[in-house]
């Protein structure tokens, strides 16, 4: 399922005119996709006064904005909160979901189909449906106002991750596993010594998805931490920047870039695993 662009051969000869037209369309589309980023970057270098004009180009470049977002507001705290949430959630998810995905993909047991269907239902359930009862549960546990209600459930599996990991594990040939079993490995040893090393790309993709999900999550932190600013994540803080810290678009855009940056950087390092993961969610699943 690697996405390599095709050489469709020479069967349809195309005139150079068509090729030029196609490339022009591609370049125009690329310009549209990139333009918002460009304008955001430009705005992030403006002064507050300029931010309130309709100028598109900064008359004076003001890189100090990127310092201001750390000094005028507790950006660093938000960053730490977001990192804590994303890293713990990802780690816990892997611990709980890899074994479940393995059992669903590679072990025969009655009821596995039923459980897998339940996992799909859980994955498809709009989170808002179960929001109130879960909120009350965490409230009784005294954990609302913190990010724990978003982190702890990862210890007992995440439906989407189980689903995605299972899809990856299905592609591992059973003969390899059987060979390990004949060598006397227990199922746990098969998982840890054979399956995990073979499924590294899939596990990496799932981990990246989970990390991004937590990094981007707005609904969860809004629900559990909106009353407690000390535990806000970047998403919540960013949405409240303008009204909370009484700043103009220039600082908001500088902060916006800062929130985008890690995601883009991770993507460029793990592009292949990432694209493969996206593809699996849509084609096989």
């Amino acid at each position: 399922m690697t996405v390599t662009l095709p050489r469709r051969g020479t069967m349809v000869r195309e005139s150079w005119l068509v090729v030029v037209a196609r490339n022009s369309v591609a370049i125009a589309a690329a310009a549209i996709f990139v333009a918002p980023f460009l304008f955001v970057v430009l705005m992030s270098f403006m002064t507050s006064d300029q931010a309130l004009t309709s100028n598109l180009w900064p008359t004076t470049w003001h890189p100090g904005n990127f310092v201001d977002i750390f000094t005028k507001m507790p950006m660093f705290d938000y960053l730490v909160n977001t990192m804590t949430y994303a890293l713990l959630a990802t780690g816990f998810m892997l611990l709980s979901s890899i074994p479940a995905a393995y059992a669903l993909a590679k072990l025969k047991w009655r009821g596995s189909t039923a459980v897998f269907v339940v996992v799909i239902c859980m994955m498809m359930l709009p989170p808002q449906v179960v929001t109130v009862p879960l909120y009350l549960m965490w409230s009784n546990a005294g954990l609302t106002g913190t990010l724990w209600p978003l982190i702890l459930p990862m210890l007992v599996g995440d439906a989407f991750s189980i689903f995605l990991l299972r899809q990856f594990l299905m592609t591992i040939p059973g003969t390899v596993l059987d060979a390990a079993r004949i060598d006397g490995c227990s199922e746990w040893q098969v998982l840890l010594r054979v399956v995990v090393p073979m499924a590294k790309p899939g596990i990496a993709a799932t981990a990246i998805f989970q990390f991004f999900y937590a990094w981007n999550d707005y609904y969860g932190p809004l629900l559990y931490t909106s009353e407690d600013q000390a535990n806000w994540t970047l998403s919540i803080a960013l949405s409240q920047f303008k009204t909370l810290h009484h700043v103009e678009w220039n600082l908001v855009m500088a902060a916006t870039l800062l929130v985008m940056a890690p995601v883009v950087i991770v993507f460029f390092f793990a592009q292949k695993a990432f694209v493969q993961g996206v593809t699996l969610t849509g084609v096989k699943g």
Binding site: W109, R110, G111, A114, V115, V118, P133, L136, M137, N140
Partner: peptide
């Protein structure tokens, strides 16, 4: 066997409902 997880879940949910009723504020 296939009914096991459902069963467990239902029993758990029932227990939790009781728990909830007992300690709603």
């Amino acid at each position: 066997m296939s009914r096991r997880p459902c069963f467990a879940g239902t029993a758990l949910a029932a227990a939790a409902t009781l728990f909830l009723a007992a300690c709603t504020p």
